[in-house]
Design a protein around this nucleic acid. Sequence first.
DNA 1: ACCCAGGGTCATA
DNA 2: TATGACCATGGG
Length: 220
Amino acid sequence: MGKEALKSACRALIGHYPADKWWPARSRFEVMVGAVLVQNTRWSNASLAITRLRNARCLNPQAMDGCTLPRLESLIHSAGCQRVKSVRLASLVRWVISTGGVRGVAMIETSELRSQLMAVNGIGPETADVILCFAFARPVFIADQYARRWLLRMGLTTSGKMMTYESCREHFECLDWSGEACQKLHAAIVLHGQAVCGRVPDCGQCALKGQCIYNKNNNI
DNA sequence: ACCCAGGGTCATA
DNA sequence: TATGACCATGGG
């Protein structure tokens, strides 16, 4: 599949799944917190935890830093893996504060910011890219499971090798879109992935109907 | 009662 | 370097 074909497929997908302000958050810090809480978890569960944090006035770096670990655990309980995620949030907040707060973080250049995020305990490639894209509007592609399935279903098999996060990301480097465009693309990929109900594509159930690009070369 | 979701880390081989 | 166990909730 050529670059132009990929671009046009992406534009088509966004056209079918237009999502303006798809990531619901009132601040950049809230996006960062949400990115950790939603790891391997449905958004509905992560969202409940965010609401509890907000009601407890802990949805800012200073307040969260003053939170004890047990209290953090109970506040984010609904997101699951609370013992793991409370430690991750604490690590994240520590880094944010030591970097000069959210304003300080925002001044760091993208590739440097990515490696600093990845150095924080609990932040891997995907969470780092989510934060870069949705909290700071940086032009990065989020190569999550939905994106990998999407590529595979369009016929991009990686000759026996497994489709890793990085190998998927490389396919989209040619896009060179704005941060806002990357946000819309990720939203559309996720929405479409959810619409076809996970592993088994069924175009009858998604908005693309018969012309679903998932099924063009569906071999999963 | 099972199954899984908008992952990442750590221990093995 | 590459799988596997583990975390743990709420909804289907």
